[in-house]
Simulated assay, not measured.
Amino acid sequence: MKGAKAGESHPDAVHSPILGLKLAEKLKATGVEVVFRSSSENDVKPASTGTYLIEKLKK
């Protein structure tokens, strides 16, 4: 996918996966748990935001 690597231009930079990847890196560095999903990854767990929240609340 064009724009999926840092330094490449993307036609819609705000919705580029790079913005999410960079945000995830910064959050992980501060100890925040991150689940990154993009449209190119169809097989990522959890299946939905609701499923993730329910799994976390059960712990």
Rank of each mutant, 00 (worst) to 15 (best):
L19H: 14
S9T: 13
E33A: 13
K58L: 05
E55M: 09
K26P: 03
G20M: 01
D12K: 10
S48Y: 00
K26R: 10
T30G: 09
V32Y: 08
K45R: 10
T49V: 06
V32S: 02
G7T: 07
K56F: 00
P17Q: 01
M1Q: 14
N42S: 13
E33L: 08
T51C: 07
S16H: 04
K22N: 12
G50Q: 09
P11N: 05
K59N: 11
L23N: 13
V34Y: 15
D43F: 10
S48P: 00
V44Q: 09
T30C: 06
G50M: 02
A4W: 12
I54N: 15
S9K: 08
I18F: 03
K45Q: 10
P46H: 01
G50E: 09
S9F: 12
L23Q: 10
K2M: 14
Y52F: 14
S40H: 13
M1W: 13
K58A: 07
E25F: 01
A24M: 01
V14G: 12
A4S: 07
A4T: 12
A29M: 09
V32F: 11
I54K: 09
G7C: 09
K58P: 00
K28W: 02
L19P: 04
I18W: 05
G31W: 04
K45S: 12
A4R: 09
L27V: 05
G7M: 06
L27G: 03
S9G: 08
P17D: 02
K28N: 08
M1A: 12
S40E: 07
K2D: 09
K2W: 11
L19F: 15
R37E: 03
G7E: 05
K2E: 07
G3Y: 00
K45W: 15
E33K: 14
S40T: 15
E8M: 06
K28S: 06
S48L: 00
A4N: 15
H15T: 12
G50I: 01
S40R: 05
I54V: 06
E8R: 02
L21S: 11
H10K: 01
L57S: 04
L21D: 06
A13S: 15
V34C: 05
K59C: 05
G50P: 00
E8V: 06
F36Y: 12
L21F: 14
D43T: 11
L19T: 06
K2I: 13
K22Q: 14
T49C: 11
H15V: 11
F36L: 14
P17Y: 00
K5T: 07
K26Q: 08
R37S: 13
S39W: 08
E33G: 11
E8D: 10
K59D: 04
K2R: 09
G7H: 05
T51E: 13
M1T: 15
